[in-house]
Computed example of a mutant assay.
Amino acid sequence: MGGMAEDPLDQLYAVAPEEFTALRTRLAAEAKKRGDAAAAKRIAGARKPTVAAAVVNRLVHHDPEVRDQLAGLGEELRAAHTTMDGERIRELSSRQRKLIEQMTRAALDTSEVASPTAALRDDVTGTLQAAIADPEVTARLGRLAKAEQWSGFGGFGDAELVFAEPAEKPAPVEKQAEKREKKPKEKPAPKERPAPSDTDDRERRRKREQARAVLAAAERAKTEADDTMADRQSDLATARLRHDDAKARLAKAEQALEEAEAAYQDAKRASREAGEVVKAAKAAMRDSG
Rank of each mutant, 00 (worst) to 15 (best):
S94P: 03
E65H: 09
A164S: 15
L241R: 12
P194S: 11
M285C: 01
A119E: 13
E87R: 10
R202C: 04
R212F: 06
Q176G: 04
G2R: 04
A44D: 01
T238A: 14
G152A: 03
E209G: 04
S93V: 11
A177S: 05
R78P: 04
A251S: 13
A195N: 06
G275V: 07
E254S: 06
D198I: 10
P188A: 09
T199N: 04
V66W: 05
G152K: 00
A281L: 11
A281D: 13
R202T: 08
L12A: 04
A31V: 07
P116C: 04
R67Q: 14
H243W: 07
R105N: 10
Y264H: 13
Y13K: 00
I43T: 07
P196I: 01
K48N: 00
H61R: 03
G86R: 12
A131W: 09
E91C: 01
P172E: 13
Q69A: 10
P184H: 10
P64K: 01
P64C: 06
K268F: 15
K187H: 04
A164T: 11
F153L: 15
D235I: 09
D226R: 15
L161E: 12
A71F: 14
V162A: 06
A22Y: 02
D227R: 03
R67C: 04
M229G: 12
E30G: 08
A79K: 10
M229L: 15
A39I: 05
R105T: 14
G86C: 05
R205T: 04
Y264E: 15
K48Q: 12
P194K: 11
S234L: 14
A22N: 09
K268D: 15
L23I: 02
K182N: 03
P188V: 00
R67K: 15
K279R: 14
R140W: 07
T83D: 11
R205L: 14
K268N: 11
E224A: 09
A31D: 06
R26H: 06
E6F: 00
R24E: 06
A237F: 05
A80R: 02
K207Y: 00
H62Q: 09
T228A: 05
G74Y: 07
R95M: 02
A167C: 01
A80V: 10
D244Q: 07
L77A: 03
P17C: 01
R42M: 06
K279P: 00
E186S: 09
D36G: 04
R105Y: 08
V124A: 06
L27C: 02
R90H: 03
R97I: 08
K33H: 10
G126T: 03
V278I: 15
I100P: 04
D266M: 11
L236V: 03
A270I: 01
A213L: 12
T82A: 13
E261H: 07
L120N: 12
R249T: 01
L141D: 02
